[in-house]
Design a protein around this nucleic acid. Sequence first.
DNA 1: ACTTTTTTGTGGTATAATTAACAATGTATA
DNA 2: TATACATTGTTAATTATACCACAAAAAAGT
Lengths: 213, 213
Amino acid sequence: MRPLKIPKPTVKRLAIYYRCLTKLKETGIDRTSSKEMADALGIKASQVRKDLSYFGEFGKRGVGYDVDKLSYKLKEILGLKKNWNVAIIGSGNLGYAIANYSGLEKNGFKVVAAFDIDEKKIGRMIIPGVTINKFSEMSSIINENSIEIAILTVPAHESQNVADALVKSGIKGILNFTPSSLSVPENISVEDVDFVISLKSLTFEIASFNDNE
Amino acid sequence: MRPLKIPKPTVKRLAIYYRCLTKLKETGIDRTSSKEMADALGIKASQVRKDLSYFGEFGKRGVGYDVDKLSYKLKEILGLKKNWNVAIIGSGNLGYAIANYSGLEKNGFKVVAAFDIDEKKIGRMIIPGVTINKFSEMSSIINENSIEIAILTVPAHESQNVADALVKSGIKGILNFTPSSLSVPENISVEDVDFVISLKSLTFEIASFNDNE
DNA sequence: ACTTTTTTGTGGTATAATTAACAATGTATA
DNA sequence: TATACATTGTTAATTATACCACAAAAAAGT
């Protein structure tokens, strides 16, 4: 039982600290400080310490943090001590690209199933060893493979229906690449990844910068 | 010259309202309200009104908003009245998937150039009519085609170097798909899209939910 | 042993974002 | 025309997040 309410931005940063520590480890550095990490990430040292303080005391005053130890703690906090089986729902270009992204395996996420509605794609492999299945088999395959996370890359107009089916199949979290706001029960987590929205934030900033010069 | 400081979350939501209005338009609805939009998006009506109020008065009291008019206003605010030329930097799976994503063209973003370091890829087409070029040609091609936005999908260890080159080439904004915090001059906008971080937010939530039950 | 330097963890403060509340305004209708 | 209802724009209140400042602790130097 952990502290009840952790700010969302804090969670995102914890994942970023974890990545930062992994990089330090690779570089052979085994001790760091809140300042060093903060500078590398373009944030304030106090922010780093505050974020960590929600979960315990991981450093030594006057010294800093042991890279290995802090890294392990964050791994634990983020739920990354186990490997996660994920399914790709919608095996178009984007689904394919994500399934083949090396960062997934490297971070403990294993693509163990893929689905599509297109008859032509059924039976093909999305990554070596993982064939694309029909939606009708989704529920059973998700259960048989203990898949807890779905990566949703279907067309927008199908997203809510598919999400409903996923929830019924017992999925715990959805990484939503579709441009729809999904409604799901409150015990199901959804994370939206919407790069068109990000592009438009970009155009807003570029356009207003020009306006203001 | 517009109101100086608009909250970042507001900008993101403006883009979401714009999409919501586009959908309403397609459905043939020509009038809406802050409540209707808010409910569709799972937020509060007062949030919608507050966000819009930074830019003017677009509705009629007692009545609501004209879908067409508000949609046009948001298009204007977001800098979407013009079409934007974008370049794909790094033509791997992800770059390919993004270049071929129909949502880009639909929203006024045109992929007019692509780049890669891999000799085998140079000369191939990333989308019909757009061939992949060497990095060495980046600067001239960006200038000749008035490209203001770069979509960065190179491997992490190259991202800062490439970003520096992009800035030198006169790019205005970078959509950063790499897991690095880029440092750029303050007149350059960067938007990070990092779905591994989002995945880890998911595992955090799923794991802590289990802990707390 | 004492002083200086470093850096953490944290309580309090400042800033930012969201939400509520309501007067102002427009529509519908009896 | 008067009354009830709907919905905006905006100010005020609340909540959330980020930042600062400093005591506590550890190490290093004198």
